[in-house]
């Protein structure tokens, strides 16, 4: 599904990622953990194609094709979804129109018939139930005036509608109270499929109590310094990140 080889990324000439290696197979859930400023969000954004995040070395293969050469919209059409850490408010554009346009762009790209407003609404209502989202939000402007929790639900709702092959969820748990966290996690779990991979970018271990990952990676200072199974997350919870900061930091972890 996704293969990242020795990826270096700079922002404004400053290198943030210093050689990331990561392989995500179909159906797997990977958690990328790390303290603030470790480069987690940079990795998420560069995979989605954010301008200004410049890959300077290395390669990313997505289902065998060179991902870094693709425009953000083409990545989305090929099945990549980024759940934003800070979903953007867009006054004047209704959530409904936005998501219908997005879905139809993807459907068209895949040779599927476009949905009309009625069919889309039926689909949207069904998917909103998945994250227990207030139906009224579909007619509001995209994320405008949404609470933190509503924004995160909206991200997972969009994921449910767009049905990506690879979802990268950037701090989808941040700013959620425990009930909202459970709802959002249930939504993500309901979207697990053998052919869909999920990369969870998170600061805290608590999300992983609800969405159990196959692999956990620790990102420190732009490098993956440790990888392991779900038990690694618990170890981090107990010990923090400090014990990883010495010694292991320089060698990129090799994944299978």
């Amino acid at each position: 599904m996704l293969e990242i080889r020795d990826l270096h990324v700079s922002i404004d000439g400053k290198e943030i990622l210093h050689g990331i290696n990561l392989v995500v197979n179909p159906g797997e859930i990977h958690a990328i953990m790390g303290p603030n400023g470790s480069g987690k969000s940079t990795l998420a954004k560069v995979l989605a194609g954010r301008e200004g995040y410049t890959p300077t070395r290395g390669k990313v293969l997505y289902n065998g094709t060179d991902l870094l050469q693709m425009l953000p919209e083409d990545r989305a059409r090929e099945g990549i979804f980024l759940g934003f850490q800070y979903p953007v408010e867009i006054p004047g554009v209704s959530n409904m129109y936005f998501l219908k346009t997005a879905l139809n762009s993807i459907r068209k790209h895949n040779g599927l018939e476009e949905l009309d407003a009625m069919d889309f609404l039926v689909l949207a209502k069904e998917k909103m139930k998945l994250v227990d989202m207030d139906e009224g939000l579909i007619n509001r402007a995209v994320n405008e005036g949404f609470s933190g929790g509503e924004k995160k639900r909206n991200e997972v709702f969009q994921m449910a509608v767009l049905e990506p092959k690879l979802a990268i969820l950037d701090e989808t748990d941040s700013g959620l109270d425990i009930d909202a966290l459970r709802t959002v996690a249930d939504g993500v779990n309901a979207l697990r499929r053998p052919d869909r991979s999920i990369v969870l970018v998170t600061h805290y271990q608590r999300l992983l109590n609800y969405i159990v990952p196959d692999k956990v990676h620790v990102l420190l200072d732009g490098r993956i310094v440790k990888s392991g199974g779900k038990e690694l997350a618990l170890e981090l919870e107990e010990k923090g990140y400090a014990w990883l900061e010495n010694g292991t930091g320089s060698k990129p972890a090799v994944m299978s």
């Binding site: 919209e73 936005f98 969009q158």
Partner: peptide, 10 residues
Amino acid sequence: FYLRSRGIDR
């Protein structure tokens, strides 16, 4: 970027 990341072209 938010719109494009959802498949809407530039």
